[in-house]
Computed example of a mutant assay.
Amino acid sequence: MASIDLAKVLDKAWADKSLPEILDAPVGALKGVSDRDGELLQEAFGIKTVRDFAELKYVRWAQALAALDATAK
């Protein structure tokens, strides 16, 4: 299983939290995602948490397309 450096993907305030806490955190817990970005994601897609964002069908579709492209190379 691949590991991830949480300090590289999370805002400093969230880097030492447990995985369940991170998944239930607002999307602003992700490094580079502002509170305003979180508001816009909620308005557009009903996204409130990191888990919601990860489960968004459009994100999954984009990941699947990128994976197909990677296997074609």
Rank of each mutant, 00 (worst) to 15 (best):
M1G: 14
I4A: 11
D5T: 05
K8Y: 09
K8C: 08
V9E: 00
K12L: 08
W14L: 08
A15R: 10
D16M: 07
S18C: 03
L19Y: 02
L19F: 02
P20L: 11
E21Y: 09
E21A: 13
I22Y: 04
I22A: 08
I22V: 15
I22S: 04
L23T: 06
L23I: 07
A25T: 07
V27K: 05
K31E: 02
K31Q: 04
G32S: 04
V33I: 13
V33Y: 05
D35I: 12
R36P: 00
R36S: 09
D37K: 06
E39K: 14
L41P: 00
Q42G: 12
Q42R: 14
E43G: 15
E43M: 13
A44L: 12
A44D: 14
I47G: 05
T49D: 05
V50H: 00
V50Q: 00
R51E: 03
R51L: 12
D52A: 03
D52V: 07
D52I: 01
F53G: 03
F53L: 15
A54K: 01
A54E: 06
E55I: 04
K57N: 06
Y58N: 06
V59L: 12
V59T: 05
R60E: 09
W61R: 10
W61D: 15
A64S: 12
A64V: 06
A64M: 10
L65H: 06
A66R: 00
L68Q: 14
L68C: 08
L68P: 02
L68S: 12
T71N: 10
T71S: 13
K73G: 14
